[in-house]
């Protein structure tokens, strides 16, 4: 059976109950998939150039990136916390979760800016070498995604302050959470490639 619900038209299968995930959820998944593929292409380009040019070593310490990575990975926890809260209609925990996720994301970005400044000081820039080009391309593009993610979270936070979300109707929160986990997951790959690969190849 087919019915009209707000924006979109959905179908109910022949047995009469709603079939699995919502249409919006599927939309978001495929959107994230295509984003992930852009990253896959950047990563492929990075590896291609890395292999052609040999061993790339960053002219900086690993400490900051490591701390940053810890923060970013940990930020998935409050994100999940917020998502779980709103399903039960818990407004307070939703706000807390969103706030801390966005905050940790912002700290990550700050850390990245700090790291970039150091690298620029070392004359390691996008135009200096092909390693510089590739490094800033990959981490910068990821940083851009973190920025978008933080904005997304902040918007959700503002809307939650207005009380826009309910236990039934909170797709934006769900989408923000999905996006955030995705940005997190990509960082694991980027981090391993940019910072850990040189260690292994020594």
């Amino acid at each position: 059976m087919s019915y009209a619900r707000g924006e979109q038209v959905g179908t109910i299968d022949e047995h009469g109950h709603e079939g699995g995930r919502s249409i919006n959820w599927w939309g978001m998944i495929f959107f994230i998939a295509s984003e992930a593929l852009i990253f896959a292409n950047f990563i492929a380009a990075y590896l291609y150039l890395e292999i052609r040019n040999g061993n790339w070593q960053l002219p900086s310490e690993l400490t900051y990136p490591l701390i940053n990575t810890g923060i970013l990975l940990a930020s998935s926890i409050p994100a999940r916390f917020a998502g779980a809260a709103i399903v039960k209609g818990n407004q307070r925990n939703l706000k807390i979760g969103l706030f801390f996720t966005a905050l940790m994301g912002a700290i990550f970005l700050g850390g990245q800016v700090y790291e970039y400044t150091g690298l620029f000081g070392n004359h390691f820039t996008p135009s200096a070498t092909i390693f510089g080009s590739s490094f800033f391309m990959l981490t910068g593009f990821h940083g851009l995604h973190v920025t978008v993610g933080v904005l997304f979270l902040v918007i959700c936070l503002l809307r939650s302050l207005r009380g826009d979300f309910t236990a039934k109707n909170h797709f934006a929160v769900q989408a923000a959470e999905m996006y955030w986990h995705f940005v997190d997951g990509v960082w694991i790959v980027v981090f391993s490639l940019v910072y850990l690969l040189p260690l292994i190849r020594g």
Binding site: S34, L37, N41, L49, P126, S127, G132, S133, M137, F141
Partner: peptide
Amino acid sequence: LFSLPSVTAASILLLLDRHIGTHF
């Protein structure tokens, strides 16, 4: 969905080369 990301990535790198001074 699976192929457009390649040309998107390629074009972004191209624009970076042209305007930021990278060397891809």
